[in-house]
């Protein structure tokens, strides 16, 4: 704006410094103000997804890794469940635990803390009203026709069945590949799907066995991708699912269930 004369360097530095400072101030205050709400939303949508793929479950707790073994996080620790997730995680503390580094916050009740898996391969245990274990929910991801497909599925270790599946994220072709979450026939094909000896994808009528998934006409690749993701995830978790839930004294019966099932 002024005459074309060299501006001293200190003025340039001061200007940018002041701009950076002001900008930082604004961003930090907005961040502090909105963070609890954002975390609450994230926890809530995760809880919804888990409870959706485990229809019998009412509450949930994440699985955490302690000394290389997977266990169910102790109650009262990091949990996104417990019915009133919104209010509870509004405090910021509970919510941060559920979405990032689980049990760390809740470790003060004496139980050993653990590490939750990275987003994308997290696992959760679901409990019904009476507090007994009804199954596990696993996040899983893998390559689809276009891009990575992320999904979550519920697994009943007693019946050795997948009891529900929901696609969390996919970019499959609209009209064809996106039927993996838009076609109710395909989605409900995972409501009672046996995993033994292994999940197979069939075209056409199939033979009516319980471990069969019917491929979507015109979206064979996307259907195959979903089955492949489930198979890989099963192979990974089948040995790793917690055998010992003794961290919680009230869950003795459920411990037997898990062991009897696998």
């Amino acid at each position: 704006m002024e005459a074309p004369r060299q501006t001293p360097a200190y003025r340039l530095i001061v200007t940018l410094g002041v701009a950076g400072f002001l900008s930082g101030l604004i961003i930090v205050s907005v961040y502090e103000w909105t963070r609890p709400k954002i975390l609450a939303h994230q926890a809530e949508s995760l809880r919804k997804a888990v409870l959706e793929v485990l229809p019998a479950a009412k509450t949930m707790r994440p699985l955490v890794e302690v000394d290389g073994a997977w266990r169910i996080a102790p109650e009262g620790g990091a949990t996104a469940g417990a019915g009133t997730a919104g209010a509870e995680s509004g405090s910021g503390d509970g919510a941060s635990g559920s979405s990032t580094s689980a049990a760390a916050d809740g470790a003060d009740d004496g139980a050993a803390g653990g590490k939750e898996a990275a987003p994308g391969e997290r696992a959760f245990a679901g409990f019904d009203d009476s507090g007994s274990l009804v199954g596990f929910a696993f996040e899983a991801e893998g390559g689809g026709f276009q891009d990575v497909i992320r999904l979550i599925y519920g697994f009943d270790p007693k019946a050795r069945e997948i009891v529900g599946m929901r696609i969390l994220e996919s970019r499959e072709t609209p009209g064809l590949g996106d039927k993996i979450y838009k076609d109710p026939k395909f989605v409900h094909g995972f409501d009672a799907l046996a995993v033994d000896p292994e999940i197979v994808l069939v075209k056409g009528a199939g033979s009516g066995k319980e471990n069969e998934v019917h491929a979507i006409t015109g979206a064979t690749i996307s259907s195959r991708a979903v089955v492949e993701i489930l198979r890989t995830s099963r192979a990974h978790w089948d040995d790793a699912t917690p055998q010992d839930t003794s961290m919680d004294r009230t869950r003795v019966s459920e411990k037997e269930e898990v062991q009897g099932g696998s």
Partner: peptide, 20 residues
């Protein structure tokens, strides 16, 4: 750019908090 980026970041947080 610094000024614009500030407002964009703020808008990002606000949308995330209100309409996730």
């Amino acid at each position: 750019i610094v000024i614009i980026a500030t407002f964009v970041t703020a808008a990002d947080f606000l949308l995330q908090a209100t309409v996730p």
